[in-house]
């Protein structure tokens, strides 16, 4: 399995799993206006995942289609970060999760524009526009919830405290990245960290929120070691493909 293939899957799985999480909310959003907004974000993410899986199928799919790759791997073969598989929780949790992810993704896609891999650069260009809007949306909500009522402040602060342990994994790198960075294909995630801290701190301050002081970090998703949540996400996601193998839909 080549590095580029694995690298594409990491980006694609993040989009797919977060898109899947957000689509659970379709029809159940806390406000009708927000139902539409979250669904738009879910659609963008599913769209990004589709482009990426299609590319993965070309790069190293061994005859598999994008759908085969998206739907027919086992739990340990999914390589998304733990952050995106966390449950929707209350709206504070949904927004905080989205905001951490968007803050990272904006910087990530921006850096990926420079990738020597033309396909990845093209996907980044399209995705960056979408992600900038996601970030604006999640930031605006984070500020409103943080600086809204006492209750909303407490709720979103609780969400930040809970999710903060999963943020560091967004910057996880291993041998998959190293070789590709040398070739100018992959983004050196370490180089984004300073900008990420600045970008997130600014919004947190406007939202009158603070990061938790403990530095407890959870990693594992990038190498297929997930939280218990992923298995349940996959059992829904894969239901049709597993129950009725090899059919057209």
């Amino acid at each position: 399995m080549n590095s580029l293939y694995k690298y594409i899957l990491r980006i694609a799985d993040d989009s797919l799993i977060l898109g899947q999480r957000l689509s659970e909310l379709c029809g159940h959003g806390p406000i009708i206006e927000e139902d539409i907004a979250l669904t738009n974000i879910a659609l963008d993410l599913i769209g990004q995942a589709t482009s990426l899986y299609e590319y993965a199928a070309i790069v190293g799919g061994e005859g598999k289609t994008a759908d085969d790759i998206a739907f027919l791997r086992f739990e340990r073969e999914y390589v998304n970060v733990l952050l995106v598989e966390q449950p929707n929780g209350d709206f504070g949790m949904t927004i905080a999760r989205q905001w951490f992810f968007d803050s990272f993704r904006v910087l990530f896609y921006d850096a990926m524009l420079e990738s020597t891999d033309q396909q990845l650069a093209a996907i980044a260009e399209k995705s960056l526009k979408e992600t900038k809007y996601h970030w604006k949306h999640s930031s605006e909500w984070l500020v409103r919830l943080g600086d809204g009522t006492d209750e909303s402040h407490d709720r979103v602060q609780t969400a930040i405290n809970y999710l903060h342990r999963y943020v560091d994994e967004l910057f996880f790198m291993d041998e998959v990245d190293t070789a590709l960075i040398t070739e100018g294909i992959a983004v050196d995630l370490a180089s984004l960290k300073v900008a990420f801290d600045a970008k997130t701190s600014e919004v947190m301050e406007m939202a009158t929120l603070s990061f938790p002081t403990n530095n407890w970090k959870q990693v594992g998703g990038r190498v297929g070691k997930h939280t218990e949540h992923l298995g349940h996400i996959l059992s829904e996601l894969q239901y049709m493909q597993r129950a009725y193998p090899n059919m057209e839909w």
Partner: peptide, 17 residues
């Protein structure tokens, strides 16, 4: 028309709607 708490959110909702 649509509902929104403030002008920024109104623009945001209008974009989505």
């Amino acid at each position: 028309s649509l509902h929104a708490p403030d002008a920024e959110m109104a623009v945001s909702n209008a974009r989505d709607l």
